Simulated scan of single mutants.
Amino acid sequence: MEHHFADCTLDDARLTLTRGGSAVAVEPKVFDLIHLLLRNAGDLVTRDRMVEEIWGGRIVSESAISACIAAARKAVGDNGKAQAVIRTVARRGLMLVAKVSREADARPSVPAQAPAATAQRIRYCKNEDGCAVAYAISGEGPPVLRFGPLQTTDLEMEWAYGLHRSCISSMALHTRYLRFDNVGSGQSERVQREIDFETEARDAAAVSDAAGFDRFAAVSFSGGCLAALNFAALYPERLTRLAIVGGYVDGRSRRSADASPDALKSMIAEGWARPESAFASAFAMSYFPEGPAEEAREVLREMQAACPPETMLRDRDVINDATVAPLLDQVRCPVLILHARDDAVHPLSQAQKLAAGIPRAELVVLETANHVPLHGSACWENYNYTLAEFLTG
């Protein structure tokens, strides 16, 4: 069904929103809110109903709801002052006040169980050393390359798990999203090799070439920033912009002359091979103290499957001793740094150091203690919208 209102069209079969004939990138929950208001055009939609239908009845902060409403207004060309499309009913909820017309989509519909909707297509390319690197592409739109946390991604498990699938779908809603597994982990060739971040960057270039990406944006998560910043220095002509989530300049061994022993390494040694052990759970909660617990466990299960314990332990020392400080002033593209205010793994001071060292970089501080926001985090909507808006320009 196509819903026409103001100068917008929302197609609830293809999950698209256009304004003035141009596609508008929106996060899934923002899309769902607009759809909910359209289905009830002219009627009051209470905040309780919004929480029930958009967030599944979970406890949601006022800031998350407000961010979602603000994003919905922006998407349809409205604002809190004009309220020409979405009107606030004080202390009660929202009402869509624009005139709405509807028409059934005459185009052939895609079967619900079409292979494209249910199957992920993993492809392979060879890096400079001849190793097989697995990659997958989702969605249509501006090209975006992901640098995932080193050695801890698995394309197949990401597709199988609900949390990761929703994150992929969110990015694929408005970008052509390219993900790959590092050599030695996930679906890539499981060979033992020393971590070298310039080599990891060259692997990313090989994947980009195979996928037909010439110039593109990139997003890096956690330790993936080490390879991403090497890529930005090696291939400045290819990178249009770079987002860094949970990144850092110096590994923990370099941050202090008297750095304490790596507790996370001890947790890996004791619990990595036993998925439900207390040590493995402690590792997950170190990164995601705010949970939700099930989503944190899902991240842990993927990491454990992606990389064997001996590889994690071997690589941990390299990562702890790494630094990208000499590369920062070589980055030429726009950079957005998103970092949790209370991150205990890589402190906010590391994000500030990134922002201070990279020319014209911008820093957004996220109100969470989770290393990277999870789908159930209170800051998720604001984080996801900010990231998508930056990556799509």
Rank of each mutant, 00 (worst) to 15 (best):
A84R: 13
V100K: 08
D11N: 10
R123W: 13
A90I: 10
S61V: 00
V76R: 01
M1S: 14
C8H: 02
E27D: 07
D7N: 12
A71E: 03
P108N: 10
K99R: 10
G56T: 10
F5V: 03
A6R: 09
R87Y: 02
V89Y: 02
V89Q: 01
G80V: 09
S101E: 15
Q83V: 05
A67T: 01
A90G: 01
A70I: 00
A98I: 07
E103C: 15
G80F: 14
A13S: 09
A64E: 08
D32C: 10
E27A: 07
L17N: 00
R49G: 03
Y124H: 15
K29Y: 04
V24T: 03
Q120K: 13
N40H: 13
C8D: 03
E2G: 05
R107C: 13
A104S: 15
S66Y: 02
I34M: 07
D7K: 06
I34E: 11
T16W: 03
C8I: 06
E103K: 15
E53G: 01
L10N: 01
A72Q: 04
P28D: 11
A119V: 11
S109H: 08
E27C: 05
V45L: 13
P111Y: 11
K29Q: 04
R91Y: 01
G21W: 11
G20N: 11
A72C: 06
A6K: 06
H3G: 00
L94W: 05
V26M: 03
A41R: 12
H3Q: 09
A72L: 11
D11L: 05
F5Y: 02
Q113G: 05
H4V: 13
A114H: 03
L96T: 09
D48R: 11
Q83R: 08
K74S: 09
M95G: 05
E103Q: 15
A64T: 04
K99C: 11
P28S: 12
A106E: 15
T9K: 04
D12L: 07
E2L: 13
D7W: 05
